[in-house]
Amino acid sequence: MAEWFLYLPQSRLGITDLVERSQAAEASGFDGVAFLDHVETPMAPATPIWEAMTVATWIAAHTERVRLGHLVLCDSFRHPAVLAKQAVTLAEASGGRFELGLGSGSMPDELAKFDLSTSSPAARITALGETLAMLKDYWGASENRDVVQVPTPTRPIPIMLGGTGPRMLELVREHADWWNLPATKVDKLQEYLPSIGSARVSVQQMVGFVRDGVDRETIIDKSRRWFGHLGPGLVCGAAGELIEYFAGLERLGAERFYVWFADFAPVESIAEFGHSVIAAYPR
């Protein structure tokens, strides 16, 4: 049975907009909401963006059921000891609804600009592996008892890692409960499955959703102009077409979908997608 998360980048939107969209997702059958983690908006640095953990905490306080996560938190932004404490706090405050998504950092220029890191990609992967090991120490899940933080998690905090490089996949096999396939590589899902160990599979997917009563060609044209660079990561269509598309990914092994709306997820799109596409799947 597939899980459905709304991927809701907290850029270009006000805090009230994020709350409304998250509550709409909860009411429409989504299982979770996920945010991104950047200091400035990718490819649009003048566009406002909100801090990732604060947004997740605020949304947790304004929802009751949906899980909260990120695609993905940047390892370089937070010291592992602080990240461990933040994760436990949010997990407990939300009643166990927080999942920790982590990555090594996708924008080296951003890291350098804000004096966060000038490390090479390989060094950042190494640092991520060290963070993952330290989280186990801090949470009391290893034999190193000297640095255990209290309180420890009352229930396991799921770890989700994103990426497809060989060294990242090593970390997935060793540490991850979930592995996320980036949108641009959706068509290569089967190629990566032998390399992820026991991690469960999620897929990030941009959707040009043709709602009832809207002009199909206008929606598809606009979605392709804005997000055609995602290649296979963009799928366009009405509810019936999307039901068939996601069912195909599920047959290939996907267990969770991070749905990213090309129209920037107005409440109407979220609600109709939930009541038509998600509702078509067994729950």
Rank of each mutant, 00 (worst) to 15 (best):
Q86K: 11
A87E: 13
A87C: 10
V88H: 03
L90A: 04
A91I: 05
A91G: 15
A91S: 14
A93P: 08
G95A: 02
G96R: 03
R97E: 00
G101M: 05
G101V: 01
G101P: 04
G101R: 03
L102R: 00
G103P: 04
G103F: 02
S104D: 04
S104A: 15
S104E: 03
G105R: 08
S106Y: 10
S106C: 05
P108F: 05
D109T: 14
D109I: 11
D109M: 12
D109L: 15
E110F: 06
E110K: 08
E110A: 03
L111I: 04
L111K: 01
L111T: 01
A112W: 09
A112Q: 15
K113P: 05
K113S: 14
F114D: 07
L116Y: 13
L116K: 15
L116C: 12
S117V: 12
S117I: 09
T118H: 14
S120T: 15
S120V: 03
P121C: 02
P121K: 05
A122E: 11
A122D: 10
A122K: 12
A123C: 03
R124E: 02
R124M: 02
I125K: 05
I125V: 15
T126K: 12
E130G: 03
E130T: 06
E130W: 00
T131R: 03
L132R: 03
L132G: 00
A133K: 10
M134D: 09
M134V: 01
K136P: 07
K136C: 09
D137T: 14
Y138D: 09
Y138L: 11
W139K: 09
W139M: 12
G140F: 07
A141W: 11
A141E: 15
S142C: 10
E143C: 08
E143M: 12
N144R: 14
N144T: 15
R145A: 15
D146T: 14
V147T: 14
V147C: 13
V147Y: 09
V148G: 10
V148P: 13
Q149A: 13
Q149K: 09
V150T: 14
V150D: 14
V150F: 13
P151G: 12
P151T: 13
P151A: 15
P153D: 07
T154F: 12
T154A: 12
T154L: 14
R155A: 13
R155V: 09
R155H: 11
I157Y: 04
M160E: 08
M160T: 12
G162T: 01
G162F: 01
G162Q: 04
G163M: 07
G163L: 00
T164Y: 05
G165H: 07
P166Y: 06
P166I: 04
R167P: 03
R167K: 09
M168C: 08
M168S: 08
M168K: 05
L169H: 03
L169F: 00
V172M: 02
E174D: 13
E174F: 02
E174I: 10
E174Y: 06
H175A: 07
